[in-house]
Simulated assay, not measured.
Amino acid sequence: MTHAQVLVLVGSLRADSVNKQIAETAVSLAPEGSTAEVYNGLAEVPFYNEDIDIPGKVPAAALELRAAAEQATAFLLVTPEYNGTIPAVLKNAIDWLSRPYGAGAVSSKPVAVISASPSGNGAKWAHDDARKAVGVAGGSVLEDVTLTIGGTVDKFGSAHPRENAEVSAAIAAVVAELVKASAELATV
Score class of each variant (00 low, 15 high):
H3W: 07
H3K: 14
L7P: 05
L7Y: 06
L7C: 05
V8P: 03
V8H: 05
L9I: 10
S12K: 03
L13Q: 11
R14P: 02
A15P: 11
A15G: 00
A15Q: 13
S17V: 04
V18Y: 08
K20E: 04
K20V: 04
Q21R: 13
I22C: 00
T25V: 03
T25I: 03
T25L: 10
T25R: 05
A26H: 06
L29G: 00
P31C: 07
P31L: 07
P31Q: 08
E32M: 10
E32L: 12
G33F: 09
G33N: 10
G33L: 09
S34M: 07
T35C: 00
T35M: 01
E37T: 15
V38W: 04
Y39Q: 08
Y39G: 07
Y39M: 06
N40I: 02
N40T: 15
L42A: 12
L42Y: 12
A43T: 09
V45D: 04
V45S: 08
N49A: 13
E50Y: 02
D51T: 09
I52M: 09
P55Q: 11
V58D: 07
V58R: 14
P59Q: 12
P59Y: 10
A60Y: 11
A60K: 15
A61V: 11
A61S: 15
E64R: 14
E64W: 02
E64I: 11
E64N: 14
E64A: 15
R66C: 06
R66Q: 15
A67I: 05
A67G: 02
A69L: 03
A69M: 06
Q71C: 03
Q71G: 14
A72N: 08
T73V: 03
T73I: 01
T73L: 01
A74V: 01
F75K: 10
F75M: 06
L77I: 10
V78P: 01
V78H: 03
T79F: 01
Y82N: 13
G84P: 06
G84K: 08
G84T: 08
T85G: 14
I86C: 08
I86T: 14
V89P: 08
V89I: 15
L90P: 10
N92T: 12
A93G: 10
A93D: 09
A93L: 07
W96A: 05
L97I: 05
S98Y: 02
R99W: 01
A103T: 11
G104E: 03
G104A: 04
K109A: 01
S115E: 02
A116C: 05
S117N: 06
G120K: 11
A123S: 13
W125E: 12
H127V: 03
A130S: 13
A130Y: 02
A130Q: 05
R131F: 02
K132L: 13
A133W: 01
V134A: 11
G135A: 04
V136P: 00
S140A: 14
L142T: 07
L142A: 06
D144M: 00
T146V: 09
T146C: 12
L147T: 08
V153Q: 15
D154E: 15
K155R: 15
G157T: 06
G157Q: 06
A159V: 02
A159G: 00
H160G: 04
P161V: 10
E163T: 13
S168D: 06
A169K: 14
A169H: 05
A170Q: 14
V179F: 01
K180D: 13
A181K: 06
A181Y: 02
A183N: 14
E184H: 10
E184M: 12
L185K: 13
V188Q: 13
